[in-house]
Design a protein around this nucleic acid. Structure first.
Length: 272
DNA sequence: CCTTGAACCTGCGGGC
DNA sequence: TGCCCGCAGGTTCAAG
């Protein structure tokens, strides 16, 4: 489900809905997602007011009063929704946060690749989950010079490099494919050989992410924002999921190949 | 170092 | 209709 634009869309919806809300009660309906919930999960959160909802990479950060933060990751299939306290829970509803205003924030995740953890707000940067992460693609830290240098010392395919969170965070399978189409670069070119085109790649990554955020993300099968709305950037995909269909630019059929276990879509005529 | 492949899970759609 | 297979937006770990 979620790459940076989808997580950012969820963040914005949550920020609007839960800012200043107090968590009255937390119910865990199983003991783990991708990793176990931390010891004392519910007790640590209860009674605290939510002061901000931030994002780092594809992680959501709920800053709570008292200097602790709830860390959440949606994995492939996670989503948050609001419902009446009385509403019946659905399959795969793993966490229920009862809020002061009387409604509940529910975390649902069929595949359970998501996770939740708690850490002191001041120590998030050093948290194990974040320690190895590269720069945010939409921040100043992600500069053309940085990208040029990072690509230069890699020999693997450019597409895998763009999806590597140590190089830049937030770019997953969809947006790596779309960014490379925008840059007219073949996904299987060695990253090092694209270093000279760092400026084009840089611009293409930012453009596709920004446009996708503007569109509320991409909804393939199940992505919904916290407000329950589908995104619509999927209607603007140039290559992702379009195997065999004509390239919008040159009409050649879009190809699908496999890279590092993931499907890559691209136009062999437009992308060199 | 760097890179790939498998593993973690459930659900869906296509082909037979 | 039903079953089996392959596939899916992410991340991590072992092994090459």
């Amino acid at each position: 489900m979620p790459e940076l634009p989808e997580v950012e869309t969820v963040r914005r919806g949550l920020e609007k809905a839960v800012h200043g809300e107090r968590i009255l009660n937390v119910t865990l309906r199983r003991e783990n997602l991708r990793i176990p919930f931390p010891e004392g999960f519910s007790e640590k959160l209860c009674g605290r007011k939510i002061q901000a909802v931030r994002r780092r990479a594809k992680y959501l950060l709920f800053d709570l009063e008292g200097g602790i933060s709830l860390i959440g990751h949606l994995g492939m299939s996670g989503n948050f929704r609001f419902c009446d306290a009385a509403a019946l829970l659905r399959p795969h509803d793993h966490v229920v946060f009862m809020l002061e205003r009387g409604n509940a924030l529910v975390f649902n995740d069929p595949r359970r690749f998501g996770l939740m953890d708690i850490a002191p707000t001041q120590e998030l940067e050093a948290h194990l989950l974040f320690a190895h992460l590269g720069p945010e693609p939409l921040s100043d830290d992600f500069s053309v010079a940085y990208l040029k240098k990072a690509l230069a010392r890699r020999s693997g395919p450019i597409k895998n490099a763009l999806m590597d969170a140590a190089l830049v965070v937030g770019v997953g399978n969809i947006y790596a494919c779309e960014a490379l189409f925008g840059a007219k670069i073949s996904p299987d070119r060695p990253a090092g050989s694209v270093s000279g085109k760092a400026e084009i790649v840089h611009e293409s990554i930012r453009k596709v992410l920004e446009e996708a955020i503007q569109s509320g993300g991409s909804s393939l099968r199940d992505f919904l924002s916290a407000e329950g709305k589908a995104g619509y950037f999927q209607h603007r995909f140039q290559v992702y999921g379009r195997e065999g269909k004509p390239c919008f630019h040159c009409a050649a059929p879009i190809q699908r190949i496999r890279q590092a276990g993931r499907s890559t879509f691209f136009c062999t005529a437009c992308q060199k």
